[in-house]
Amino acid sequence: MRRSLLVIALIFAALMVVALEADDSLFVQVRESELRSAPGFLSQIVEKLSLGDELSYVGERAGWYQVTLPATDQSGWIHEGSVRENKETTLQLAGEGTTRTVSSREIALAGRGFSENMEGEYESGNELDFSAVDDLEARRVGPEEIVAFVLEASLRQDILQPAEE
């Protein structure tokens, strides 16, 4: 056993992973999101975003990032939970003698495809029907309904307000 572990250790020792420093790039890590005019969930939507969209960091305030969309130069605010730092990592592949740079954004996009394929296999393998889950996920509540709901019963309105400096 000790020899086999050592042998395998030798194999992997030839592999190196070099992390590059992160730049100011962020990417959307949730299925759908919105760029807003102010740092609040009910602020005006200036752009619809989806998984993998790249953003440039400008600043932050109380859990919100101010960003620009490099594609259109549109600027706005997005909640910190919607985005992730787009770190780049270089893989040095011993077998090929080459390197390849991968970003966490590419990993997220590759991961989604993989997860969707896995779900398909899981669904057929277990004879499960995901359509009821799809129906559940189709239950959306519009921002105007939330505003009306809060106001109707005089709930506290903090969630309706943009974050303050």
Binding site: V7, A9, L10, A13, A14, G95
Partner: peptide
């Protein structure tokens, strides 16, 4: 450790 690659062994 740090050494060479022995893919066949693996």
């Amino acid at each position: 450790t740090g050494c060479a690659l022995l893919a066949e062994e693996a």
